[in-house]
């Protein structure tokens, strides 16, 4: 076991994958010599060489397209898109090509590509360094979609993603890179060494794709969340003294319906919290799924706390971010309803 932050955990996952399987390659803007603008690929080029860890031109569409070609020709590419906000030039290659290749060729062709990209706000990045685009990828058929909320899961899920024969889009909540964040920007930053999930096994292990995690068991209400908001939601529930069951979705596609439904059937109440904009957000899919399966057990309407339906504004970061107060108010409403 070692103490790791999320950057080190992700780095360790790629290190293990590169070491174990000679077909694994890492590519992206500034990932090679420099080790990535967030240092996630630090040292990998030095260790595995310029032919396994490639700096690329600034062309996200090109990066994903090249990764598809490499994948078809026997490699197992791990592509980095520098910020999720810059993934859109690659959207066509992801949606029309990567996601559908296996289907359209009836299994004749496929590409085991993993795309890693930092997402989410809280770093004063303004509208082009803060987006949470999970919903627009969840709507696409044929690509697995993952977001870890801590170093332990980050390493295990990334190894699982790289080893998966299907394409995986791996979203990394960058506000969590250096420590858990409970939504209060005024508090001094807390390192991962203070958190049990900052303990990361040294060698190879996987966290299964398609499995949510109950991060806190409880009976009053189910709080479903992912990424940065897992920590915010936990803090909000604790601040109210609620015995909340907090679930980290971890994988959007395929969704672990069983874990979510079992919890809401037990508690009868549910709140969903995500940072992404509300309209058409992943929370809508969660609500529909739960409502379909738990209607008769529900004691109150399901609520969601989300980002507002605006671009992420630089000056109003913390008015935009669905912080503890907003989550706590919604928890109170759901607890008092019905």
């Amino acid at each position: 076991m070692a103490q790791m932050n999320m950057i080190q955990a992700l780095n360790a996952a790629m290190d293990i994958a590169l070491g174990k399987d000679p077909s694994v390659v890492v590519l992206g803007e500034d990932v090679g010599y420099f080790g990535g603008v967030f240092r996630v690929t630090d040292g990998l080029q030095r260790k595995y060489g310029q032919h396994r860890v490639l700096d690329t031109p600034i062309a996200e569409g090109g990066i994903v397209a090249a990764a598809i070609g490499m994948g078809v020709n026997g490699l197992r590419p791990v592509a980095e898109i520098q910020f999720a906000d810059y993934i859109y030039p690659a959207y066509d290659q992801i949606v029309s090509e990567l996601a559908r290749l296996r289907y359209r060729s009836a299994g004749a062709f496929s590409a085991p590509v993993t795309i890693r990209t930092p997402c989410g706000g809280g770093i004063r990045g303004g509208q082009t360094h803060s987006q949470s685009p999970e919903a627009i990828f969840a709507h696409v058929c044929g690509i697995k979609l993952v977001m870890p909320s801590n170093p332990y899961d980050a390493k295990g899920l990334l190894i699982a993603a790289i080893e998966d024969d299907d394409p995986v889009l791996f979203l990394e909540p960058k506000r969590l890179y250096n420590g858990p964040f409970d939504g209060d920007p005024g508090k001094p930053a807390v390192p991962w060494s203070t958190h049990p999930k900052g303990e990361v096994p040294d060698g190879h292990y996987t966290v299964p794709i398609g499995k949510a995690e109950v991060v806190r068991a409880g009976d009053d209400i189910t709080v479903i969340s992912y990424g940065t908001m897992v920590h915010v939601a936990q803090a909000a529930a604790a601040s109210l003294g609620l015995d909340a069951e907090v679930i980290d979705v971890r994988t959007f596609v395929p969704l672990d319906v069983e874990t979510l439904v079992a919890s809401v059937q037990k508690t009868g109440r549910c709140l969903i919290a995500h940072e992404a904009t509300r309209f058409g957000g992943f929370g809508a899919e969660l609500i529909a799924t739960i409502q379909e399966r738990c209607f008769w057990q529900l004691e109150a309407p399901i609520e969601r706390v989300c980002g507002w339906d605006t671009p992420y504004p630089h000056a109003f970061e913390w008015e935009y971010f669905p912080g503890q107060a907003r989550v706590a108010a919604a928890l109170t409403r759901v607890m008092e309803a019905g």
Binding site: G125, G126, Q127, T128, P311, P313, H314, A315, F316
Partner: peptide
């Protein structure tokens, strides 16, 4: 601010 707080500096 001409951008009403919506953009990063220099935009």
């Amino acid at each position: 601010d001409m951008c009403k707080g919506r953009q990063l500096p220099v935009m």
